[in-house]
Amino acid sequence: MSETYDFLFKFLVIGNAGTGKSCLLHQFIEKRFKDDSNHTIGVEFGSKIINVVNKYVKLQIWDTAGQERFRSVTRSYYRGAAGALLVYDITSRETYNALTNWLTDARMLASQNIVIILCGNKKDLDADREVTFLEASRFAQENELMFLETSALTGENVEEAFVQCARKILNKIESELDPERMGSGIQYGDAALRQLRSPRRGQAESAQECGC
């Protein structure tokens, strides 16, 4: 399997239990909805290489357990994450109210420059909505987060969430962020090897594996 890429980013998926974190990851990697799995205990991994602004980026994604008490365990995985999907469930106000706590943890424990995208998941369940789009986008703005409403069921905005987050990190690398600084959550891939390959490849599908 080809494993060439320009950059490797460590990503986290965090948020309350039952918001659909693992389903988002599964939809992103396998392009399928999967809801017949046991919930996550501890941490699971997934990875995928995507093409963003002419760069191949390998996302190494850490999917975490959401229950409150597991946070004291999963917090130790945050270190050195370059990006994060912060997930709540649009049909559950409680999962939205918990966002501040998750955010504090992520900002405190991951890389200083962590790029976070807020995902209001279960967009397909609009009839049961408890959190409006406007309210959440205001929250995102106040906290300097990107924001999308997603559906792991239909796949809507799922790839976009990961790609937008990666794109922002790439932009940061061009302007201010030094990937070689310790704990940036970014590593260089073997770009030299990539030059030997044909310059055009199918987008976002060069290598896939899923640890879930």
Partner: peptide, 13 residues
């Protein structure tokens, strides 16, 4: 509520 969230996520197989 916490217990209920996990009902369909316990041994679906």
């Amino acid at each position: 509520e916490t217990v209920r969230i996990d009902m369909h996520r316990t041994f679906p197989e």
